[in-house]
Amino acid sequence: MNSFSNNKYSSSVRKYFANTHYGLFNLHPSASAMDIRRSYRELSKLYHPDTTNLPLEEAKQQFQKLNEAYGILANPEKRSLYDLQIGYSRWNVIQSSYDLSMSLSEEEEGMTSTYLDPTERPLSGGELFALLLMGITIISCLLLAITLAWLRSSII
Rank of each mutant, 00 (worst) to 15 (best):
96 S>A: 15
12 S>Y: 10
115 Y>H: 14
19 N>I: 01
82 Y>I: 06
60 K>Q: 12
22 Y>V: 00
104 L>Y: 09
57 E>D: 13
87 G>T: 01
100 L>F: 15
16 Y>F: 07
40 Y>L: 13
80 S>M: 07
65 K>C: 11
101 S>F: 03
79 R>H: 10
112 T>L: 09
77 E>K: 11
89 S>C: 01
42 E>T: 15
51 T>Y: 09
99 D>I: 00
73 L>W: 08
67 N>M: 09
78 K>Q: 05
52 T>Q: 00
77 E>A: 08
113 S>R: 03
84 L>S: 13
104 L>R: 07
28 H>P: 01
69 A>C: 14
27 L>D: 02
43 L>P: 13
6 N>T: 11
72 I>S: 02
62 Q>K: 15
94 I>V: 12
10 S>F: 00
35 D>C: 14
61 Q>T: 12
34 M>W: 03
76 P>E: 06
63 F>C: 06
17 F>C: 04
36 I>Y: 09
117 D>F: 05
40 Y>H: 15
87 G>L: 01
76 P>Q: 04
112 T>N: 06
52 T>W: 03
21 H>R: 11
53 N>D: 12
52 T>Y: 02
59 A>Q: 02
15 K>Y: 02
62 Q>A: 08
81 L>P: 05
82 Y>L: 10
95 Q>K: 11
71 G>I: 00
25 F>W: 00
110 G>W: 10
50 D>N: 14
62 Q>M: 08
117 D>M: 05
98 Y>L: 12
103 S>V: 09
99 D>Q: 06
91 W>L: 13
44 S>P: 03
93 V>A: 08
58 E>G: 05
45 K>P: 07
84 L>P: 00
3 S>Q: 14
51 T>G: 04
19 N>C: 06
52 T>S: 09
100 L>W: 09
56 L>H: 15
4 F>M: 14
16 Y>P: 01
26 N>T: 12
37 R>W: 13
28 H>Y: 03
105 S>R: 00
77 E>R: 10
20 T>W: 02
27 L>R: 05
32 S>T: 10
54 L>Q: 05
70 Y>K: 11
57 E>H: 08
54 L>M: 10
24 L>V: 08
82 Y>V: 04
8 K>Y: 00
49 P>E: 06
9 Y>L: 00
62 Q>D: 01
14 R>D: 02
87 G>N: 02
48 H>N: 15
71 G>Q: 02
16 Y>R: 13
93 V>H: 09
5 S>H: 12
99 D>L: 02
74 A>P: 00
92 N>V: 03
58 E>A: 12
89 S>F: 01
33 A>F: 14
50 D>C: 10
70 Y>W: 14
47 Y>R: 11
33 A>H: 12
59 A>G: 04
66 L>C: 06
60 K>W: 09
3 S>N: 13
10 S>H: 01
64 Q>F: 08
102 M>C: 07
111 M>G: 11
116 L>A: 07
23 G>Y: 06
114 T>V: 07
89 S>D: 04
60 K>L: 13
101 S>W: 03
97 S>N: 13
2 N>I: 03
97 S>D: 11
47 Y>D: 01
21 H>S: 04
103 S>T: 14
46 L>M: 13
27 L>I: 05
